[in-house]
Simulated scan of single mutants.
Amino acid sequence: MFGYRVPQADQAMLISGGRGGAAAPFKVVTGHGAFVVPVFRKVQFLSLSLFESEVEEPCVTKQGIALTVRAVIAAKVGNDTESIVNAGQRFLSDQRQMPTLTGRIFAGHLRSIIGSMTVEEIITERQKLATEVLDGSKGEMAKMGLIVDALQIQNIDDGGLGYIRAMAAPHNARIQQQAQIAQANADQAAAEAQQQSLRQQAQYERDTAITQAGFAAETQAAQAKAAQAGPLSDAQAQQEVINAKTELAQRQASLREEQLVAEVIKPAEADAEKLRIMARAEAERTRIQAEAAASSNRVALDQALINQLPLIVEKAAQGLAGAKVTMLNGSDGLSDMISGLAAQGVAIFDTLRGEVGSDKPAQDLPSHSEPKGIAAKDDPAQGGDNQR
């Protein structure tokens, strides 16, 4: 569009010819466009891009040692309006002067800062040197509308004096010593590792030999066992045959024993039992005959006792002649009393009869082991007495 101007992204558009105000002789436009009236307004563009400035300056340290210091500065125009105005007033007509002037400013501050430091400090504290140079030049750079993005000390040279090399010699010696020690330790570790490897190899060979010997022994044992398997089987078979024959002989002996028992011992025991039974029968017959012979005498004795029974009862009744007796049951009581007297007489008779019978036939009884109760039960004379 006619009269409309737009600056680039890394440019600031400066419009002069109007009323820019007391603070700025021109209007600053960045990031957007603006209408510019031809003939009445003039437009110029100030670069805001980064530029580089190199400095290689001979300096003298605090110790009086001459050093050549090489540094690189990265700077640009500030983005704020004040910085753009300051830079435009100084560099708008010739913007190529900005790197040159920046290098000169930093060279002066670099000489000043190095003059207050020793070589050792410069070598070991380069960042401190750069920070002090930046701090010393910050005010001057701000007046020109410039800002420093970075400052890098690239090289420090003593011009062949050998001071820096000599300063590094103790460190180099220490480093070499440490390197030698490290190499010796590495060699020792390698030797120990080799010895360990040899020991492990020997241990492995020994274990392998022991394992092989064990396998060989197991193989020989298995072979010997296999060789003995046949004779052991034959021996076991023969033992089984012997056991079978032994068992057969025991069975035959048992069978023969049973035959002897059935054919000899049992018939002999039967004959002996038969003889014992016949002997007992004969003894019983003899006893019965003896008792029968003695029974005739007892019958006469029993008849005499029977004849005396009334007299016994009479003597028992005489005991009640002078007694006073009260009958509680009348005629029944009298009957009970008479029956008791008769029973008492019978008991006395039985007692006398038993005493007489036990004294008389002792020498006539047969001499066998049968009890008297059996003879008394079978005695016909006693049976007769019971009936009486």
Score class of each variant (00 low, 15 high):
M1Y: 03
A12D: 09
A12I: 12
A22K: 15
A22F: 00
V43Q: 03
L50Q: 14
E56N: 09
G64M: 14
I65N: 13
D80P: 02
G88E: 05
Q89K: 13
R96V: 00
R96L: 14
G108E: 07
G108I: 05
H109F: 08
G115Q: 07
I122Q: 11
L129R: 01
D149L: 12
Q154F: 12
Q154E: 14
G160A: 12
I164G: 01
A166V: 08
A169W: 03
A193W: 10
Q200W: 12
E205V: 09
D207F: 06
D207S: 00
E218F: 01
A224Q: 11
K225C: 12
A226K: 10
N243V: 11
K245L: 07
Q250E: 08
Q252G: 05
E263K: 01
P267R: 06
E273F: 02
K274H: 15
A281V: 08
R285T: 07
I288T: 01
A290P: 01
A290E: 09
A293E: 03
S296P: 01
L301E: 11
Q303N: 09
P310W: 02
K315C: 02
G322Y: 05
A323R: 13
D336Q: 14
M337A: 14
Q344R: 01
A347M: 13
F349G: 02
Q363S: 00
A375N: 13
P380W: 07
